Amino acid sequence: MKTYIAGPMTGLPDYNRAAFFAAAEEITASGGIPLNTAFLPDGLSDADYMAISLTMLQCADAIYLLDGWRGSAGARAEYALAEKLGIRILPAGHA
């Protein structure tokens, strides 16, 4: 199962990459394929990050919501799109 990882990044140390990479390991260990935006390079605009992220999400079978996702405007948008598209919603720890 292709699983998109969503959560807070902006304003967090190293953009919260550690949490994204830990989730990716959990998804891989359960036999899934993580779609992880934490691999994107620094320096893009917010619009660029969202365009790439939403495209990745549209390829997913599920979305994995990291702790604190509700505090992120981007993650809330990703959740709303996943809900609209009927993509399975997975809370953190349920890969």
Rank of each mutant, 00 (worst) to 15 (best):
K2D: 02
A19M: 10
A23K: 06
M9S: 09
R70L: 12
E26H: 15
G7I: 00
Y49K: 09
T28C: 01
T55Y: 12
S72K: 07
P8K: 11
I33V: 14
A77C: 13
I89T: 02
L12P: 05
F39M: 13
W69P: 02
N36T: 06
G86I: 04
P41M: 10
I5T: 01
I5Y: 02
Y79V: 10
D61V: 03
M9L: 11
Y79D: 06
A19P: 14
A75R: 01
L90N: 02
E78H: 05
M1H: 13
A38Q: 06
D67C: 10
G86Y: 01
D42N: 12
A51V: 10
L40V: 00
A22M: 12
Y79E: 09
G68M: 04
L54M: 15
L44P: 07
L54G: 00
T37S: 14
S53D: 08
A80H: 09
A24R: 06
I87H: 02
P8A: 13
I89S: 02
Y15E: 15
G68W: 01
A80P: 01
I5R: 02
D42P: 00
A23Y: 01
A77W: 05
W69V: 07
P34S: 00
T3R: 07
M1T: 13
G68F: 01
E25H: 12
Q58W: 08
Q58Y: 09
R76E: 10
L35N: 00
Y64V: 09
I87N: 00
F20S: 07
L90Y: 02
A82M: 08
S30Q: 15
N36C: 12
T55I: 10
I63M: 07
S72A: 11
D14M: 13
G86D: 04
F21E: 14
S72W: 06
L66P: 11
R70M: 12
L85S: 08
A75S: 06
G71S: 10
I33C: 09
S30V: 10
G86S: 08
I89H: 01
I87E: 02
E78Y: 03
A92D: 13
A51Q: 15
I5M: 06
G32C: 06
E26T: 15
F20L: 08
A24M: 11
P13S: 08
R88L: 13
D61H: 14
G31R: 03
S53R: 04
P13M: 06
L57A: 09
A95N: 14
M1Q: 14
T55P: 09
R76N: 13
